[in-house]
Simulated scan of single mutants.
Amino acid sequence: MGRRDYEDDPDAPAANSLVPAASAVVVDEAGRILLQRRRDNGMWALPGGAMNLGESLPDCVIRETREETGYEVAIVGIVGTYSNPRHVFAYDDGEVRQEFSVCFLARPVSGQVAVSAESTDVRWFSPDQVDELPMVPSIRKRVNDWREGNMPALR
């Protein structure tokens, strides 16, 4: 299924759904960040996705990271909460989803790089390599918030 992101775009379609979601900035011991290249839009992104019924947001991001990258992670903080009503995702099936996402900070505890049905590539990048990657503005904001340390600690 294809997806198009609209942010602060007057031509964006109106949202018709709101789905809680979570993403993760996964950082290894070398300070590298784990990113996946999305199959639906070709952009580099953080692992993450929609929360299922009966699941907490932390459980959601742990599951999504495992499914999309091959890594089990431990949550060590929160990067931020992102709920811009002027940011929507339009899907080929007609759903137009308003953004509502919590981005967690995580570290890998086991696993190895694995591409999923949702991605075409999964890689570790040094923070300075991220600036050159094609990425939607909302994901770049999360990465920049992490790099700039604009996040509360989770204890």
Rank of each mutant, 00 (worst) to 15 (best):
A22Q: 02
S23N: 12
S23W: 05
S23K: 03
V25T: 00
V27S: 03
E29A: 14
A30Q: 15
A30G: 13
G31E: 11
I33S: 02
I33Y: 01
L35Y: 00
L35V: 00
R37C: 07
R38W: 01
R39F: 06
N41K: 02
M43T: 11
M43V: 04
W44G: 06
G48L: 05
G48Q: 01
A50D: 14
M51I: 05
N52P: 00
G54H: 07
E55H: 09
E55M: 10
P58F: 10
D59Y: 01
C60A: 12
V61N: 09
V61D: 13
I62W: 04
I62Q: 13
R63E: 05
E64W: 01
T65V: 07
T65N: 03
R66D: 07
E68R: 00
T69W: 02
Y71L: 10
A74T: 06
V76T: 14
V76Q: 05
G77I: 10
G77K: 04
I78Y: 03
V79A: 06
V79W: 01
V79P: 05
V79D: 03
T81P: 00
T81S: 09
P85Q: 10
R86V: 05
H87T: 14
A90F: 01
D92F: 00
D93V: 01
V96R: 10
V96T: 12
V96E: 11
Q98T: 09
E99D: 12
F100D: 14
F100V: 05
S101H: 03
S101T: 15
S101G: 09
S101F: 02
C103N: 13
C103T: 15
F104H: 10
F104C: 08
F104D: 07
F104N: 08
F104V: 04
F104Q: 06
L105K: 04
L105T: 02
L105G: 02
A106R: 04
A106P: 09
R107V: 12
R107P: 01
P108S: 09
V109T: 15
V109F: 07
S110N: 14
S110A: 15
S110D: 15
G111F: 02
Q112F: 01
V113F: 03
V113D: 11
A114S: 14
A114Y: 01
V115P: 12
A117Q: 12
A117I: 04
E118S: 13
E118N: 12
V122L: 07
W124Q: 11
F125C: 10
F125H: 13
D128V: 09
D128Q: 15
D128C: 07
Q129G: 07
Q129T: 02
V130Q: 05
D131Y: 07
D131R: 11
E132R: 13
E132H: 09
L133A: 05
P134D: 10
V136D: 14
P137S: 15
P137A: 15
S138E: 14
S138L: 14
I139D: 06
R140N: 07
K141Y: 10
R142L: 12
R142W: 06
V143D: 06
N144D: 13
D145C: 11
D145N: 13
D145I: 03
W146Y: 14
W146L: 00
W146F: 14
R147E: 13
G149H: 01
N150Y: 08
